[in-house]
Amino acid sequence: MKQACSIPARAGIGLKPSHYRDALDSVGTIAWFEVHAENYMGAGGAPHVWLERLRSNFPFSLHGVGLSLGGAEALDQEHLANLRTLIDRYEPGLVSEHLAWCRRDGLFFNDLLPLPLNEESLDVVARHVEQTQEALGRRILVENPSSYFAFESSTLEEPEFLSELCERSGCGLLLDINNVYVSACNNDFDAETYLGKIKAEQVGEIHLAGHAVEHLEDGETLRIDDHGSHVCDAVWGLFEKFAGRCTGVPVLVEWDTNVPSLSVMLEEASKADRILTQVSSH
């Protein structure tokens, strides 16, 4: 089920509608882009016109946020079929989803919600990933989530869970280093130790993004994964270290709220590219 990834091992950007026009004027400066699959599931109109133009100019990846791979319920077959239609039409270089759930009792929550990590949930998620890859006719990448709490019923550490998921289902890992850092700070574990347990050969893409720091009433600090600012220094540091032992993988800078100009996002991508060049020359 593996196929060659047409996405270069360079830093791309998450593309927002406000940047479509500028992006088409920037051919040569954007290595590749990623869009959210659910924004292109309408019947017709401007989103499709733009995606068609953009994909003829840049390699791109389709990133889903609505499949609910981590949900206890069966996958939404209609959603899977929509995803397949989109993939057949635009032929993205990569397709990815999340280790999270977002549907229950017929309602869609439009957020990436957490699940306990244990043998039972691993069975469910592995089955869902297999069904997805079967329905899409291709391998997908699954992204580690940001979390704000840990479950008592979790018996597996996240890197272990993800590695086993890749083994069982044949999927790859979309390693979001900002998510690792956010979860580590919120749940008192060490991000470097986490990254040390990630098997580099399972990683098919790396995400970088900014997050918000919120001070709660009781003095507790919580990091919120809002993709609304520059990548923080700690995350750059983790990335540099990890990239040193995981070469040849595409990197993506996400910025989804308080979206800046395209040039700011491209500067952020250039920074990631410089790190990639640096570590590969060592």
Binding site: Y148, F149, E217
Partner: peptide, 16 residues
């Protein structure tokens, strides 16, 4: 529906 989380109830409600 989420099961228990690590920490006390007030921590749960803040994080939830």
């Amino acid at each position: 529906t989420l099961g228990k989380i690590v920490g006390d109830d007030s921590k749960f409600s803040r994080r939830f």
